[in-house]
């Protein structure tokens, strides 16, 4: 019997897919070029229309660029950063966790001490410092996020590996003559993928926020390229005159992060054998 997927989860999934598709298709669905400035069209409110340039559904920014187009392209940046940085930290963190959980002893002590140290420094602080030193760029951003966020995966991978490694089928694989590499990849990894996936979803939401935060501070995606953080950062000075510059990207950010986190919680519940109803 499969657990039923509730209507709420379908809505959440649909929203996430909608965001992803919009981001992917930004060049085709955007009404305007996100970079085209026009001094004549500065700070137009949502719904403004002009004979020459057409409609601006969400208004324009301080340089007269179409806000909707910028938000759509900004979603691209957010997704790209989140996916790539989550992938980097997932791979690095899982590998270290597997190795620590399998070999135990001093290897594990070394790795897990390092994890503790990393986790005791606020990640955003670490990221800010590194970017400030290395100079902001897309690649830096991803590497910085990827290499500051792996410890959470390591913790989960380590604990799950310890659990799985104690099961008889691992002993049976050893008896078969399988080496450590094969045991880790074929026997352990598939059986700890669930909890890691849950961490990855919650990190995904967090990475979107981190990107926005860093861009907001001017340390992320560099202008004029749009990103939700940089749009809000620029709109901050006009909060009173042009509320739409902060409200719309903020709303997008909020909705997406909430959706992804709800999905993560739901996945955690579903993958937890104790709640699987058997």
């Amino acid at each position: 019997m499969r657990p039923r997927i509730s209507a709420g989860i379908w809505i959440i999934l649909a929203l996430i897919v909608l965001f992803a598709v919009a981001a992917l298709l930004a060049p085709w669905v955007s009404p305007h070029d996100p970079l085209r400035q026009s001094l004549l069209l500065r700070l137009r409110p949502p719904g403004s229309a002009t004979a020459s340039a057409g409609v601006f559904p969400l208004g324009t920014d301080d340089l007269g660029r179409d806000l909707l187009s910028r938000i759509l392209y900004g979603a691209r940046a957010s997704f790209a950063v989140a996916i790539l940085s989550v992938s980097v930290s997932l791979v690095v963190g899982t590998l270290l966790g597997l190795v620590a959980g399998w070999f135990r002893g001093w290897t594990a002590t070394l790795i897990m001490r390092f994890v503790d140290a990393m986790l005791s420094v606020p990640a955003i602080l670490l990221a800010v410092l590194t970017v400030a030193v290395l100079g902001p760029s897309f690649v830096t951003l991803i590497l910085v996020l990827g290499f500051t966020r792996w410890p959470r995966y390591t913790r989960v991978a380590y604990a799950s590996t310890l659990q799985v490694a104690a099961l008889p089928f691992i002993a049976a694989a050893e008896m078969s003559g399988a080496g450590s590499g094969r045991i880790l990849l074929r026997h352990v990894l598939p059986n700890i993928a669930g909890p890691l996936l849950v961490v990855a979803t919650s990190e995904f939401g967090l990475m979107i926020l981190f990107e926005a935060g860093l861009s907001f501070l001017g340390l992320g995606i560099q202008p004029p390229a749009p990103s939700w953080g940089s749009i809000m950062s620029a709109g901050r000075q006009y909060v009173e005159r042009a509320w739409w510059l902060t409200v719309f990207p903020g709303l997008g950010l909020f909705t997406l992060v909430v959706c992804v986190n709800v999905l993560g919680d739901w996945l955690r519940d579903r993958l937890d054998p104790r709640s699987a109803g058997r």
């Binding site: 089928f169 002993a171 049976a172 059986n191």
Partner: peptide, 16 residues
């Protein structure tokens, strides 16, 4: 030498 374990559920990798 080979071994047969007590619990047939945990003796087999569920993903294989």
């Amino acid at each position: 030498m080979q071994m047969v374990f007590q619990d047939p559920v945990t003796s087999l990798n569920p993903r294989m």
